[in-house]
């Protein structure tokens, strides 16, 4: 009984739905505020993404004539739920809930499931704009997948070099290794991989310079072109939650060593780190860069970012 209650607590409160949503909304609001400040504006209130979500919930949901009803409505829910399960698998510094039941490869694929649910939702809406959007979303996905994979392998080798198998995919093992040997980020050979991961984050989330799939001025919100009402709101919320989860994943992979020993304090540390990562990887590029072209995104990720990750992987492989 206690076990069940704990599971419910984990799923619903921490690190599950409630925590993710609250932190995700705050991060997204903070991002908008920071961008506004960098552009010398006042900016929207911190809770603006939350108001946006609630507003969407109060609107009518129109199902277009060409849409496939069931998938059109199920896709946002499925994407959101899959994303929350990722949160359960990512250890928050020392406090981990289910991180031993899924490894980094699984997390990579669960993040893909989130993207795919958005793509399927877009496809099911039957709009030509959504068709273009999903094509771009998929190209973005192919783009960041290569550097992401290389980073995962580099981290896995670094943490697993001393184990009998020589490698590991387990996020828990990676965090434990960092607790013993210091954070990944402070090993010089991992710095290029960390940089590459910082580049992967905005593209994975679809933040501004890389938001080719949802370009509102060119292709009318792309994948979301036909979504209205609560489903659209849920997609926006998923977007916010993804910001927190990618930051938490970065913390687990590269900053796992710093732990205070108290679960609550650790969560706070991760939140603070997430704010920093959000500022560096999302707000600054958003304020500084114009949107990339589709083929530029692909080229950038498969040359520059993948190159950075590859340098790390080779260095780690040479035992440096």
């Amino acid at each position: 009984m206690t076990n069940l209650l704990w599971t419910m607590f984990h799923v619903l409160v921490f690190p599950g739905v409630l925590f993710c949503v609250v932190i995700g909304v705050l991060l997204a609001g903070l991002d908008r505020k920071l961008v506004a400040r960098m552009q010398n504006r006042v900016g929207p209130p911190l809770l603006q993404p939350w108001y946006d979500f609630l507003k969407c919930c109060g609107k009518e949901t129109i199902i277009p004539r060409h849409a496939r009803r069931s998938l059109f409505l199920a896709a946002p829910v499925l994407g959101f739920a899959a994303l929350i399960t990722v949160a359960l698998f990512v250890p928050v510094l020392s406090c981990s809930t289910y991180s031993t039941s899924a490894d980094l490869v699984v997390i990579l694929y669960l993040l893909t499931v989130v993207g795919v649910s958005m793509i399927v939702g877009a496809a099911a809406s039957g709009s030509p704009f959504a068709g273009v959007g999903l094509s771009r979303e998929m190209v973005a996905m192919i783009s960041y997948e290569l550097p992401f994979v290389l980073v995962i392998l580099a981290v896995g080798r670094m943490a697993g070099a001393t184990t009998p198998l020589g490698v590991t995919f387990s996020l828990q093992a990676i965090v434990d290794w960092q607790a013993a040997n210091g954070s990944m980020l402070f090993h010089w050979s991992m710095i290029p991989a960390a940089l590459a991961m910082l580049f992967v984050i905005p593209c994975e989330i679809g933040m501004h310079p890389f938001d080719i799939a949802e370009a509102e001025t060119e292709i009318c919100e792309g994948t979301l072109a036909e979504y209205s009402g609560p489903p659209a709101g849920l997609f926006r919320l998923t977007h916010c939650v993804k910001m927190y989860i990618m930051c938490a994943l970065f913390c687990a992979m590269f900053l796992g060593g710093i732990s205070t020993g108290y679960a609550a304090l650790d969560a706070l540390v991760v939140v603070v780190l997430s704010v920093v990562i959000t500022f560096v990887t999302m707000s600054v590029p958003h304020a500084v860069c114009a949107r990339f072209k589709v083929e530029q995104v692909f080229k950038f990720y498969w040359t520059v970012v993948a190159g950075l990750a590859l340098i790390s992987l080779i260095l780690v492989w040479l035992g440096l």
Partner: peptide, 21 residues
């Protein structure tokens, strides 16, 4: 733009009528 900054009231330009208020 920064001078009038309607975004501080929550306004946002959207690309599709489906999400417009």
């Amino acid at each position: 733009t920064p001078r009038y900054d309607a975004e501080r009231l929550g306004f946002r330009l959207t690309g599709t009528p489906r999400q417009a208020d």
